[in-house]
């Protein structure tokens, strides 16, 4: 995967574990929290549009990514995505999720700017980002 100097990309990459058997669960958890934040700003329709577009673009690299329409129920929004992750090896699922998140946030940043997008990510994943920062400090 291409490397990037963007803080946002670094955040996403830092949140994706190297390998875990619960890759699908980890991925969906990140999406659920991100969706909650995005919904509060652009509504369900806005999120669904961004998400569908991101899936479409990511499918060129990972054709097996969920292609079906999002179910109307909000709590089942990521069911298809989870199933498609579960059908792959954890490493591949995580790599695909990383690309999907980067694609999603790339589009979002192109609409609302890099700064606001990064703030939203902090709001969505604040704890994890703080933990990561703490771990990094410990490691330093």
């Amino acid at each position: 995967m291409e490397t990037s100097n963007l803080v946002r990309h670094t955040i996403i990459q830092s949140l994706i574990p190297q390998s875990t058997e619960k890759a699908a669960g980890v991925a969906i958890d990140l999406w659920e929290r991100l969706a909650a934040q995005i919904n509060s700003i652009v509504g369900e329709g806005g999120f669904n549009s961004l998400y569908a577009r991101s899936l479409f673009l990511a499918q060129s690299t990972f054709p097996w990514l969920a292609a079906g329409p999002s179910p109307p129920q909000t709590d089942q929004r990521f069911t298809e995505l989870k199933m498609s992750f579960e059908g792959q090896t954890p490493a591949l699922a995580l790599e695909a999720n990383c690309l999907l998140l980067i694609t999603f946030t790339d589009i979002l940043a192109s609409l609302i700017g890099e700064s606001l997008t990064t703030r939203i990510l902090h709001s969505a994943w604040g704890d994890e980002i703080s933990n990561m920062a703490g771990m990094e400090l410990k490691n330093e």
Binding site: V42, G43, G45, G46, A52
Partner: peptide, 15 residues
Amino acid sequence: QEANAHLVIATIEAQ
């Protein structure tokens, strides 16, 4: 939210 949703959808559609 509604306005943002419309803007996002319209922008994505435009893209």
